[in-house]
């Protein structure tokens, strides 16, 4: 039985998993979807109620019936031959997505994670509601395109508010990559709220936190790593200054662990990286959960065996021991 890994070619966590699986003599078929259709081919037939056939590259083939699990780790988009018109290319994308994606979706295998489950889970307002429904503490949050709502919401927050994006937080302008980090709104921001009205914005009560934690869930295993920031920038958004962070493994409180397990079950996930604030009263407060959240740098810093858990899960092909 084979583990199918769909990932980009340059991805160190994927390399780690491939080498670990290979070391355990678990067959692996790794491909990037940018290889399809020029370097990756599919032939699948539906007969007698079952899909058969396989995926092939120039050097490797896997039978569909041999696939036990699929790790879907942010592969690149399909790449079609030069010379197609935009119309042909858009058509080819749709057909590839629904054809190749459809065959894979029809296989009775474990997905980590199925892209449709991940897509559902990327709505942050849904994340907050799901977390609250799983008995996790969630900060008051505003979604609006009305400046007066921002003013009202900020006025009610005991420790002020932060603004954060719903999705990927980077843009490139004039060739410069820029990132919109989570930001505490100050008086100047609140005095000039132009631009709030042009799209949806997310504001959240600032949590007077002691530190933060990332909780990585892999199947039925839960790993906690405390993230401690040592300057003001990183205290607001730890992504803003990785050099100012220290890490240590942390035991996830039982009610929080129970909550994240329920969250995973509710949204049909096998992998997620949860971010929590831990306030001065040691309460864990849910911020968000990323179904493709990074973990390798935390594993490298703390020896938390997240990769091993992923290898176990993919090799096993089902969620529980």
């Amino acid at each position: 039985m084979t583990v199918l890994i769909l990932a980009q070619e340059a991805d160190s966590p994927t390399d780690h998993i491939v080498l670990e699986l290979t070391g355990r003599s678990v067959p692996v078929f790794r491909a990037d979807l940018s290889w399809f259709p020029q370097r990756l081919s599919l032939t699948a037939e539906f007969r007698d109620g079952t899909w058969s056939g396989g995926l092939s590259t120039a050097t490797r083939t896997v039978e569909l019936s041999e696939i036990r699990s699929i790790w879907y780790r942010d592969p690149a988009a399909f790449r079609f031959p030069d010379g197609m018109t935009d119309v042909e290319r858009a058509h080819a994308h749709r057909e590839a997505r629904l054809g190749l994606g459809g065959v894979l979706a029809a296989l009775p295998v474990l997905w980590v994670n199925h892209p449709n489950r991940s897509a559902d889970a990327m709505y942050k307002p849904l994340q907050l509601a799901t977390a609250a429904g799983c008995a996790l503490a969630v900060p008051p949050t505003l979604v609006t395109n009305e400046a007066r709502a921002v003013t009202r919401f900020a006025g009610m927050a005991p420790h002020g508010v932060v603004g954060k994006t719903f999705g990927p937080n980077s843009v490139t302008e004039q060739g410069v990559l820029k990132v919109a980090y989570t930001r505490r709104l100050d008086a100047n921001d609140l005095d000039d709220l132009r631009g709030v009205d042009v799209t949806a914005h997310q504001l959240q009560d600032w949590v007077d936190k002691d530190h933060e934690a990332r909780v990585v869930v892999v199947g039925d295993q839960v790993f906690g790593v405390a993230i401690r920031a040592h300057n003001d920038r990183a205290r607001v958004d730890w992504r803003a200054d990785f050099d100012a962070l220290t890490y240590d493994p942390v035991t996830v409180p039982a009610p929080v662990e129970k909550g994240v397990r329920r969250y995973m079950q509710t949204l049909g996930l096998q992998y997620a990286a949860f971010d929590f604030c831990i306030d001065r009263n040691r309460q864990w407060i849910f911020l968000e959960a990323n179904t493709a959240g990074q973990y390798a740098w935390l594993e490298a810093a703390t020896d938390t065996p997240i990769s091993a858990a992923l290898v176990d899960l993919l090799a096993r092909g089902h969620a529980h021991d």
């Binding site: 603004g163 990132v179 919109a180 921001d189 709220l193 631009g195 709030v196």
Partner: peptide, 8 residues
């Protein structure tokens, strides 16, 4: 967008 005002 206000959310892009302080991009770094």
């Amino acid at each position: 967008p206000f959310s892009l005002r302080h991009v770094a």
